[in-house]
Design a protein around this nucleic acid. Structure first.
Lengths: 114, 114
DNA sequence: CGACCGTATGTAATCAGATTATGTATATAA
DNA sequence: TTATATACATAATCTGATTACATACGGTCG
């Protein structure tokens, strides 16, 4: 069972930035990695990831270059910029707050759920 | 500073259901309560909460009645149904999974963030 | 008394990010 | 040669949230 698509909304870019923080990567690889690392629960669609790339490139958080497509389809690689690292840091801080607040709002003091 | 509106997306109904799980309430009160309990960070707009009510009523998760408006504007109260309680239980389970998975994807093994 | 504010609900138009659908292209395995 | 996995891309659509607007009651302050 995969999650409803609204669940990721607002976090897609953060997750992509975290992956690019570690190393340059490309759309297909990032999608597969998110699928694996989410226990098969988060299956980001092609269109979603490529439109996210466009936004983030316009925004200056990432930049792109074509990889040498030795054996296989061409790959467009993405690299995180200094701005991207700052954006990630802010989004991480935001996530830490959201996580705490949503846990309060959704779970509250229900002994069965805490 | 309030959160980006996408952050709540997909959780608005869960938060409303949790409040109604405790007691019947009405739009204005729920909005104020979420604002207080989120340390002023989640300011759900009127239109958002009233359209959410419409969706949830259609869906059968809640039902509604007019309160006796003694001194002040009329209030439309909402009550959670058995179906609503089931929906909440599912959404809670889903949130517990999402929370764990997003924490992995966003924070990973970064010692500074764990 | 009249203006304003807090309370309270509601709809229409719009926005943004995600999905579906569709298309292109290469290399490898059956 | 046909199918499959890899790889990228765009147009049309969906959905939930926002802005903007409208209505209405009761109390306060000048």
């Amino acid at each position: 069972m995969t999650f409803s698509s609204d669940i990721l909304r607002g976090h897609t870019e953060t997750v992509i930035l975290k992956i690019l923080f570690e190393k340059d990567s490309y759309g297909y690889e990032i999608t597969k990695r998110i699928l694996e690392d989410s226990e098969g629960r988060i299956d980001i669609k092609d269109a979603t990831i490529y439109t996210a790339f466009r936004r983030m490139e316009l925004d200056g958080s990432i930049c792109t270059y074509w990889g040498d497509s030795i054996g296989g389809a061409r790959r467009r690689y993405y690299s995180i910029t200094d701005k991207g690292r700052k954006v990630y840091a802010e989004k991480l801080k935001e996530w830490i707050d959201i996580d705490r607040i949503l846990n309060t709002l959704i779970r509250r003091n229900d002994p069965a759920t805490v």
